[in-house]
Write a protein that binds this DNA or RNA. Structure first.
Lengths: 96, 96
DNA sequence: TGAATATATGAACAAGTATTCATATATTAC
DNA sequence: GTAATATATGAATACTTGTTCATATATTCA
């Protein structure tokens, strides 16, 4: 069963979303609880702008979703699938 | 439980290995059976040089291993873990 | 309304990466 | 030994990507 070029691109895009240490740390933080942009920026030691740019990509990939409350935007993982991918990768890194 | 910066980098590197459509297609091909460089190049429609460069990265990440036979080098997936990550990603893309 | 705050976004630059081309190494056959 | 074949590698180039800075949008509070 050969993988179509389209699926290959989509798969690559999915993994690309997790291919940066900043984004991995954002995902890791969001696994524990939802957070808004400035909290994430504080925790990540990144500017809010940089975090916002990264979150945009994660949003477009539908890896995270948003909940607006006043002028704050809270981010959380979009589904359990993302968490599973993350944990499986972590397992590989730990016992690889 | 906060993710260490080192682990974040290692995780990002792991996912980076799967963050390119060419490499995804190589992994996909190797899931079915081991292949040598020129067979992969033919199947991927890439030059043997380009394939070899990509395989080098996959080797360094220990996602693939090699078996030498005469002047040919056969590549296969290093372990089931890689296949699982690939299939979980594919599932996400299909039903995401 | 205007000031303050939270987030988003566009442009620019730096850093990283995939491919191509030329060349090197290794193995087999003669 | 030489020729032929399979793969690997270094350098160069083009492309992509992450961050910063400046600015824009949106919301709350006075």
């Amino acid at each position: 069963m050969t993988l179509s070029e389209l699926k290959a691109i989509q798969l690559a895009e999915l993994f690309s979303a997790l291919s940066d240490a900043s984004r991995v740390r954002i995902i890791s933080a969001l696994i524990e609880k939802e957070m808004n942009v400035s909290d994430l920026a504080g925790k990540m030691q990144m500017t809010e702008s940089a975090v916002s740019h990264q979150l945009r990509g994660l949003r477009q990939m539908r890896l995270v979703r948003t909940r607006k409350s006043g002028r704050q935007v809270f981010y959380s993982l979009d589904d359990e699938h993302v968490k599973k991918l993350y944990l499986m990768g972590l397992d590989h890194v730990k016992h690889g």
